[in-house]
Computed example of a mutant assay.
Amino acid sequence: MSHRLTPRVALLLTIPPILRAGNAIVGRMVHEMVPPILLNFLRWAIALVLLLPLAGPVFGAGSSLWPHWRRYAVLGLLGIGMYNALQYLALQSSTPINVTLVASGMPVWMMLTGWLFFGAGVSRRQVTGAVLSIAGVLLVLARGEFAHLMELRLVAGDIFMILATIAWSLYSWLLIRTSGPSDIRGHWANFLVAQVGFGAVWSGLFAAGEWALSPATVHWSWTLIAALLYVAIGPAIIAFRCWGAGVQAAGPAIGAFFVNLTPLFTALLSSLFLGEAPQLYHGLAFMLIVGGIIVSSRR
């Protein structure tokens, strides 16, 4: 199958980074209005309600999903229940710029996960790219001063985001190894609903645990309602659909470069909405991370 990057495909691949950058901004804006794990549950519960009319029969009694329910339950746990919850937890103590920059090291974690758990080979070029990308992540964690690493001055949000990227790496490898019935895999809404349904259950369980351990009130307002609708419709549904169509047309290798536009858009949106101007080390870290991915992706 030939892959081409046309203007239309480039637009499809650019929309998800913009929406995901907005997800980080919104998560930071409402972090005092709603507990992070509950925010994740509400997000995916709304997304599930909106998606069910498009793929309701997936959960029917005779659906072909049920013989394969375990693999979709694991996908829902890693990609929806864990990754997004950890990201919102990260935004409690870290800035959206830092969170998305740390997440930009995700291709490196994917390489390591594939090598350690799925028998994927690693080339010298990939190792070189990994070193560059890890250097970029360390620059963010050190807040521009590598002496901070020796002092272990990591905020909790940075650690949560690293855990989130590891969860997403496992999710991504399992995703391409998941076959399942063709009526589920072959239709984007069916495939997404199968994961979101189980993911919403996991998120609900985690939110119940959060509520039991540290009861917190939700400060309902029109701002919070608008934020919930945005994170449910934009980053959850629209971004997934655009990304799937764009990667099918251009291929995952080209699509990987667009992932790392997220920190750039996050920096711009943070400056506009949160007054958190990007620092010089953010730009240097972004260049290192993208440079590492370019090196590791070249054939």
Rank of each mutant, 00 (worst) to 15 (best):
A236N: 01
A236K: 02
A236I: 07
I237H: 00
I238H: 06
I238C: 02
I238P: 13
A239Q: 06
A239E: 01
A239T: 07
A239I: 08
F240A: 07
F240I: 08
F240W: 14
F240Q: 11
R241S: 00
C242W: 06
C242I: 06
W243Y: 15
W243M: 12
W243T: 05
G244I: 15
G244V: 14
G244S: 14
G244A: 11
A245L: 15
A245F: 13
A245K: 14
G246S: 06
G246C: 14
G246Y: 07
G246V: 13
G246D: 04
G246P: 15
V247K: 03
V247L: 07
V247S: 03
V247Q: 05
V247T: 08
Q248L: 10
Q248W: 01
A249Y: 04
A249F: 04
A249M: 11
A249C: 08
A249N: 11
A250F: 03
A250I: 10
A250K: 04
G251D: 03
G251E: 02
G251T: 10
G251K: 09
P252W: 08
P252H: 00
A253T: 13
A253M: 15
A253P: 05
I254E: 00
I254W: 07
G255V: 07
G255S: 01
A256L: 07
A256V: 09
F257G: 14
F258D: 01
F258A: 00
F258M: 02
F258V: 06
V259L: 13
V259T: 13
V259R: 13
N260S: 02
N260G: 12
N260Q: 11
L261E: 04
L261A: 04
T262R: 03
P263Y: 05
P263S: 06
P263L: 08
L264Y: 07
L264C: 08
L264I: 12
L264K: 02
L264R: 09
F265C: 05
T266D: 00
T266H: 08
T266L: 01
A267M: 09
A267G: 15
A267E: 04
L268D: 08
L268K: 05
L268G: 07
L269N: 04
L269Q: 12
L269P: 13
S270H: 10
S270E: 05
S271E: 05
S271W: 04
L272E: 02
L272K: 10
L272D: 03
F273Q: 08
L274Y: 01
L274W: 01
L274F: 06
G275D: 11
G275T: 10
G275F: 00
E276T: 10
E276Y: 09
E276H: 11
E276V: 11
A277S: 15
P278Q: 10
P278G: 04
L280H: 03
L280C: 00
L280A: 11
Y281F: 13
Y281I: 02
Y281N: 02
H282Q: 05
H282M: 06
H282Y: 03
H282G: 01
